[in-house]
Simulated scan of single mutants.
Amino acid sequence: MTNLPIAPTESLLSPITLFMQADLVVKTVMIGLLLASIWTWAIIIGHGLKLKRVRKASEAFEKDFWKADDIDSYYDGPGKADLPPARVFSAAVTEWRRSTAGATVDREGTRARLATAMSAAVGAEIDKLSDRLSVLATIGSVAPFVGLFGTVWGIMKSFTDIAAQQNTSLGVVAPGIAEALFATALGLFAAIPAVIAYNRLAHVIDRIEARLNRFADGFHGTLSRELEL
């Protein structure tokens, strides 16, 4: 009586077993995708908390700023805070003092320079806050293809083993195919959170940028009125 091939058990198809039995190339792909996934979650948690702190602190700074009676005293005190609106405020005050230091003041030139200084400061702050987003975008776009490469390589190896053993039974085919598909799963496991987090964090940064621009416009209007006195 011919013995029928036994299908692989669940333990043989567990993630750890699939990794241990995988080809060196597929293992390298899996390790890289796992590290990318860990890196993704580290950015999501760390940068997400940072943006939350920055947003709340910036809102508190702006509320205090608009209640201040003396801009110069505020500049020497809370204006030195390590916050995006504080640095925009500092850039404006610095440019104001330079432009109004002479005997005669070019009003239109001063307004233009103030707008340029604050716009540059806003851009610099947004660049800092957006720094980690490029990593998420890269992982989100590249990880699926890296996983697919591991899958293609694993399937090629499985077909090579089938040809060598001349046996197409499930017990021969399934482990290699499962190892290959596991690489694709890891690629999606790294890419999906990265894409979702990128879109969410980009939205938060866009809101911070809009708030900074409103703050800059408001302060620019305040300084413009000072030029008319």
Results as ranks from 00 to 15, higher is better:
Y74P: 08
W41M: 15
K56G: 04
A36E: 12
I43G: 06
L24G: 08
F19L: 13
K63Q: 12
R87P: 03
V29T: 02
H47D: 07
M20I: 15
I31S: 07
A57S: 11
F89N: 02
M20K: 11
K50H: 11
V29W: 01
R53P: 01
W39M: 15
I43C: 04
I16W: 14
I71P: 06
S11D: 13
I71G: 10
D23P: 02
D64V: 11
W66P: 12
G46I: 07
A60H: 04
D72F: 12
K56P: 01
M30H: 06
A22L: 14
A86M: 12
Y75R: 10
V29L: 08
V88D: 00
T28N: 06
L12T: 08
S90H: 06
A22Y: 06
A22R: 05
P8W: 08
Q21P: 09
I38P: 09
A36T: 04
P84N: 13
R87W: 01
M20P: 03
P85E: 05
V54A: 04
P85V: 02
H47W: 14
D23E: 13
G79F: 03
Y74M: 12
L13P: 03
F65P: 05
S11P: 05
G48H: 12
P15V: 06
H47E: 08
L35A: 15
A42R: 07
F65W: 09
H47Y: 13
P15F: 05
I44G: 09
T17E: 11
A57C: 10
T17R: 11
I38E: 03
L24N: 09
P85Y: 01
L12K: 14
I44R: 05
W41V: 13
W66M: 12
D72L: 12
T28F: 14
K50Q: 12
K56C: 04
A22E: 08
V29Y: 05
D82V: 04
D82S: 11
S58E: 01
I16L: 14
D70Y: 06
L34K: 08
S90V: 00
D69G: 09
D72T: 12
F19T: 13
K80Y: 01
F65T: 02
F89L: 14
D23M: 02
L12Y: 08
I71T: 10
H47S: 13
L13F: 10
L13W: 14
E62F: 01
L83T: 02
I44Q: 14
I31P: 06
K80P: 02
V54G: 02
Y75G: 00
L51F: 05
L24V: 12
L33C: 04
A36Q: 00
F89K: 04
V29G: 04
L83R: 01
S73F: 14
L13Y: 11
P8Y: 04
D76P: 00
L35P: 05
F65S: 09
V54R: 00
T40H: 05
G79I: 00
S73N: 14
R87G: 01
Y74D: 01
D82A: 15
S90I: 01
P85D: 13
S58R: 06
F61E: 02
A42G: 07
T9G: 15
R55C: 05
